[in-house]
Amino acid sequence: MFGYVFKRSLQSLVAVAGLLVLVFFLSRLTGDPAYLYLPLDSTEAQRQAFNELHGFDDPLYIQFGRYLADLLHFDFGTALSRNRPAMEVALEAFPETLKLAAIAMTLSLVLAIVVGALAATKPGGIFDRLATTISLAGASAPDFWVAIVAILFFSVSLGLLPTSGTGTPLHWIMPIGVLMLRPFGLLTQVVRGSMMGVLTSPYIKTAQAKGVRRTKIVFVHALRNALLPVITVAGDLAASLINGAVVVETIFGWPGIGKLMIDAIVRRDFALVQATVLITAIAIFFLNIVIDLVYAALDPRIRHQTA
């Protein structure tokens, strides 16, 4: 198992390095930061002095070499928009995204397991049809559209919830609800399909013949063996939640790393863009390794090969 973790970590390191190279050069295509950070009536000499001060006047290959040298000393640059170390700013925002994604994913998984398992017990029934309709609608609805409609309905029309920001439990309801919708829809379908296959297994029929309670058969015997594909899909969705929180955080003004990344791109804050992408990439790669280990722990038949 240690060999597998080492191999995956090495692969992730190579992928992160490639991503940083790509982000470094693509971020420079957004334009000259001097036009954003200096007054509109600034002279060409002032813009040249600004670029010289921050090293933006050097050729790209020199800037990239300097960036790599700084990385070796764990120096990720200074955020121009905050006048603070870029990594420090990114690390302050990341826990907000992590909390939002963790709560949304946990609630989605629990609700999907319950709803999907109950729907599988009576395929074609009223509850099954209702659960299928809601889950498919949730999986198909775009996050940005749901977020805007939620603000118009719950905040503007009814005045029940705040439109954006943080501070009270009410501020959490809409961001979590919007983030939950797609994972809940997809996981419900996965749980339902997996449970329908397991419930027709011979050992389930044997348990029924022995008089085992229906709830124990569904939520203990069947669910235990139906969880493997659910764990795989849940891992992919959890990674996408961290990465996809950009839209939700931007619409609801949530002070997470997704909104910080968008702000950094708009402001041409190259160091902050690179720091936010690095943290997000590391979190996603780490989560994928953890999911693989959990999957192996749940199914002893799986043996990861390091070769």
Rank of each mutant, 00 (worst) to 15 (best):
Y4L: 08
F6L: 15
V14Q: 05
S27V: 13
R28M: 06
T30L: 15
P39M: 07
E44H: 07
R47F: 07
F50V: 02
G55P: 01
A69V: 05
F74H: 11
F76Y: 12
T78W: 08
A79H: 07
A79Y: 06
R82S: 11
M87W: 11
E88Q: 15
P95L: 02
P95Y: 03
E96H: 15
E96T: 04
K99P: 12
L100Y: 05
A102D: 09
A102I: 07
M105F: 09
M105L: 14
A120V: 00
T121N: 06
K122V: 00
T132G: 00
T133E: 00
I134T: 07
F144W: 14
I148L: 15
L160V: 07
L161A: 03
L161S: 08
T168Q: 05
P175F: 00
L179C: 07
L179V: 06
F184Q: 08
G185M: 03
T188K: 04
M195R: 06
M196V: 11
Q208S: 09
G211C: 13
V212G: 05
R214G: 04
V220T: 10
H221N: 13
N225V: 09
N225F: 03
A226V: 02
L241A: 08
A245F: 08
V246C: 11
F252Y: 13
F252R: 14
F252K: 14
P255N: 03
K259H: 09
L272T: 07
I284G: 14
F285S: 13
F286W: 09
L287C: 11
I291T: 15
Q305G: 12
